[in-house]
Nucleic acid binder design. Structure first.
Lengths: 205, 205
DNA sequence: AATAAAATCCGAACATCATTCGGAAAAAGA
DNA sequence: TCTTTTTCCGAATGATGTTCGGATTTTATT
């Protein structure tokens, strides 16, 4: 039995990491279409067949790249300055969501066109949302606004619904930014303005 | 020189249409991953090589499918009841945007992950937006709200910016609906509620 | 009607891809 | 030192997009 911290296990994990690093680099430099088992293997001096010792196949590598990217998205949201006033904090969380997408355009597109297809069994919406760390950052930001008296939950429009509205908006901005608007210079000021408009609408409920 | 309306030309166009119909059917029944030149050819009793007489390649067929889908999206938006009061009309345009995505999940995903990569040369944002018929329906709906006194354009938040905000929101809803939320029952009421919140925010500017 | 040109369509081939398999070599364990 | 396990790969399989040479059909010209 191999010790989880044995040299062999650590080498194995380093190779797994090298595979993911190579995959990310190919995606960001050449786009998702250029990602292949052969391209990854070539980049780390392996044969394509050798990669199957570490991952079950190309889909598994893509899934792992997406998992890491979701973690990084969560970190990007959590990096928002917590000392900001609640409304500013929520808005800047949103801006960080879009900024992450702008800085990782192909990975972001991959995250939201690949991973969902891997969704196993359906579950209640709320349970599914609460399992998403990135969403929970937005939810907590909305909760701060409620606690500050800026937002007032209603029977037909609770905190969860408010958070979903915010997610819909920032996700729309991000998806448009990495697709239709991909050749346009990013305008964070315009994003900020739209978020202020939305937050004004939530506040007016 | 072949007459544009000659039998030969009409047969050629019918075959082009049959190829697109086959592609659409494969996409909606089996997903984008199942789309291949061999699958299309098999469905219309052609050989894969024969398809190259009508389209330059698989990418061109996908582009044509997306063009048609954008036309259908525009039609779905234009089908909104024009006799509705301006605010209701704008909201229902948004709901129709999401409904279209829900009814054409794989095609919608393809539209917004394939076509953008084909964007040639950069142009001013406003010019690019005005070239999109679907966006112009949203723009006109916002304009109606302005003319009805419901929205008031500001120097830093004009009609175009308002329309972009609305597009960001409905696009976010649609993209989440066809990816992360794809296994959830659609909730048009919740979409409608979010749109009301946003429109309240625009009205409050 | 006959002939030539253009269009249509396809089998086969090529290059690339994901994945599997049998096996050689290296590492680890007894 | 020997055995077992792990690592890694060449070659193969099946699938894909695309091209090419050529057969057949359709259209135009004489």
């Amino acid at each position: 039995m191999i010790d989880a911290s044995s040299p062999r296990t650590r080498r194995h994990q380093r190779t797994q990491q090298a595979i993911l690093d190579a995959a990310r680099e190919i995606i960001s430099r050449e786009g998702v279409a250029a990602l292949s088992m052969r391209a990854i293997a070539e980049r780390i001096d392996y044969s394509p067949a050798g990669l199957y010792e570490y991952y079950g196949g190309k889909d598994e590598i893509i899934a792992a790249v997406c998992d890491d990217a979701f973690d990084q998205l969560t970190q990007a949201l959590r990096s928002t300055d917590p000392t900001l006033p609640p409304a500013d904090y929520l808005r800047e969380c949103g801006v960080n969501y879009v900024r992450f997408a702008l800085e990782n355009t192909d990975a972001f597109l991959l995250m939201f066109t690949n991973a969902p297809l891997a969704a196993p069994h359906p579950m209640p919406v709320e349970a599914m949302l609460r399992q998403s760390p990135a969403f929970m950052v937005l939810y907590d930001a909305v909760q701060r606004c409620v606690e500050a008296g800026i937002f007032t939950p209603r029977p037909d429009y609770d905190v969860l619904a408010m958070a979903v509205t915010c997610w819909q908006m920032v996700h729309g901005m991000a998806m448009l930014a990495v697709t239709i608007m991909r050749n346009q210079p990013p305008n964070l000021g315009a994003y900020r303005r739209s978020l202020e408009v939305l937050q004004a609408g939530i506040a007016a409920q």
